[in-house]
Design a protein around this nucleic acid. Structure first.
Lengths: 249, 249
DNA sequence: AAGTGGTCTAGACCACCAT
DNA sequence: TGGTGGTCTAGACCACTTA
């Protein structure tokens, strides 16, 4: 099928932006699955009836956004939430001395609840909509470091039952991606320092009211659609939250 | 003068990377000052003896790193630490409701000390080297929100006396830039939750041991050179630290 | 050897800004 | 009007992977 861009300038904006939009739509629609290659640049150029340079510029941006990954000589692939990517893009808790260790999750709770006002606004739902609530404990090198609660739109995540979370071997974003084809591409977090309550204090192995880092996260998929709301408590006595801004020369 | 790149491929790496390096060197050497325009793309192409496309690719990267700023029809400019840039790139404390307000600094202390082991490693100095220590209190909408200690290599920042910090009207990075031509282009931060001590508790207007956010920052200039070490305490009862990861479509 | 992405070039035209 | 950056094209060649 030829999806050539018909009217030369009736559509808004630069050509490569339109190509980028078409690619994003294909990704969102699942035309190309995570870890698969998208068509080669020359094929895409033919298909969209533009020059290779224009396709490259569109892919450039998607690669800069970590949505696609180029590999010279092999092709361009849909980014996945491999352990590696997870570690380097979305998980910011590291050892005090700067080393990273793989966090090991333990499922503490899985249940279905109804959205209150706060959850509804965070997840773009109506009050009373069904929501999945999952609580996990993360350990690094055997020590409990973080306890977090995940909230998901039950309509969208219905296929994920308790076992899915219990048996997963990688990050939850990998789970979402493999089981639902849902790709988290951006997160926004708000951090506070709070005193830990009795239940979480016990889980983290610290005294009640110890200062801990509270991280509220909203995770987004394509088109800025929120798909996960998460609230974490991090024990920062031996670990820190790392945040790097700007240039990577 | 003609700085054309002599040997076609004896130098390592792609041409545009070499062009980028030459531009970065010019910036670091102060050949073009903050807020000034660099030569036009065609001039640079002539000067370096490459095609415009190659110059564009080099500038593309520097613009993506917020080191240069393009303005269609006007030219390409050296980025400055205007209030606006500061607010959107390096200052992450916002109101709980998501609104941003301009923080107002008050100078609490200015003195010269000697680097201990920790400062020495953070700033790439020797133990005992002279260091400037500055303490500030930040207020937002009149309320104290953050107290921070800045540590600077006295050799490099000698020109900055107490008055410089007292009388400044903008962010300190603007001060560094205007007075020393020193451009901060990257920061790396480590966050912890800690109980606030008596002195800082009083400054922030909270009870002793209230959980506050501790932010350790190292700021870098070109070539990954650390130039500032900063340790902040943020009162997160009415404010949060915002951190956004990945794509900006 | 064939196919992929990566670099580099040269030129055309457009959109925007200053004057 | 002339100069600037922004887009788009077409083609050559290189570097890398796979078979």
């Amino acid at each position: 099928m030829n999806e050539s861009i018909s009217t030369p300038d009736l559509h808004h904006g630069p050509l490569y932006k339109r190509v980028k939009r078409l690619l994003t739509q294909g990704l969102a629609a699942g035309e190309w699955k995570p870890n698969e290659a998208i068509p080669s640049e020359s094929k895409l150029a033919q298909r969209f009836n533009v020059s290779i340079g224009t396709v490259r510029k569109a892919i450039d941006e998607l690669a800069a956004e970590n949505i696609l990954v180029r590999q010279q000589g092999r092709g361009t692939f849909v980014a996945t939430h491999s352990v590696n990517r997870y570690l380097y893009h979305f998980y910011h808790v590291i050892n005090e001395d700067g080393t990273k260790h793989l966090p090991v999750p333990e499922l503490l709770q899985y249940r279905r609840i109804k959205a209150d006002a706060r959850l509804a606004t965070r997840l773009n739902l109506e009050r009373g909509d069904r929501v999945i609530h999952v609580r996990n404990l993360l350990r690094m090198e055997g020590k409990p470091v973080e306890v977090y609660d995940i909230y998901l739109d039950a309509a969208r995540f219905d296929a994920l039952d308790r076992e899915s979370f219990e048996r997963r071997t990688g990050p939850v974003y990998q789970l979402y991606q493999e089981r639902l084809g849902l790709n988290v591409i951006r997160t926004s977090e708000q951090l506070r320092a709070v005193g830990v309550g009795p239940e979480e204090a016990q889980l983290l192995g610290v005294a009640v009211n110890t200062p801990v880092l509270q991280v509220e996260r909203i995770a987004y998929t394509y088109h800025d659609t929120p798909v996960e709301y998460r609230c974490s408590l991090v024990n920062t006595t031996a670990h820190v939250y790392q945040s790097v801004q700007e240039a990577r020369p």
